[in-house]
């Protein structure tokens, strides 16, 4: 299992779209830094994220979300929040970490 990390806003870069194009069933995706904007309800990427949730677990780094003025109740249903310790756990549980820079 791979942990994919996405740190760019989907409005700025195609990192999330590319990541989801190559993430296989059962892989995990962590949204952090500006990547957390993809986790928020009501954006034009909500459909993409919701669709991906059928095949992948998607996590959001809560400190990055909160830094940007959003809370865990603003995020798309089915996403999970983690802190840095949770990020470390996800990396340790996965066979590899692939950054979508």
């Amino acid at each position: 299992m791979t942990l994919h990390t996405v740190n760019k806003s989907p409005f700025d870069r195609n990192s999330l779209e590319s990541c989801l194009r190559f993430a296989r069933q059962g892989h995990s995706v962590l949204l952090f830094e500006d990547g957390v904007y993809a986790a928020v309800k009501g954006t034009r990427f909500e459909g993409l994220v919701t669709e991906a949730l059928k095949n992948n677990k998607i996590y959001v780094l809560l400190p990055d979300l909160e830094a940007r003025g959003m809370r865990s109740d603003n995020i798309i249903d089915g996403l999970k929040t983690v802190d840095y310790a949770g990020f470390v756990d996800l990396a340790a549980e996965s066979d590899r970490v692939q950054a979508w820079l």
């Binding site: 740190n7 830094e33 500006d34 400190p63 802190d83 840095y84 310790a85 470390v88 756990d89 340790a92």
Partner: peptide, 19 residues
């Protein structure tokens, strides 16, 4: 960029968890 901050927070958390 936030990259160095994130790397620092990750490194610190990993050390705290005994990695």
């Amino acid at each position: 960029h936030q990259a160095s901050d994130s790397a620092y927070q990750f490194t610190k958390a990993a050390l705290e968890k005994g990695h």
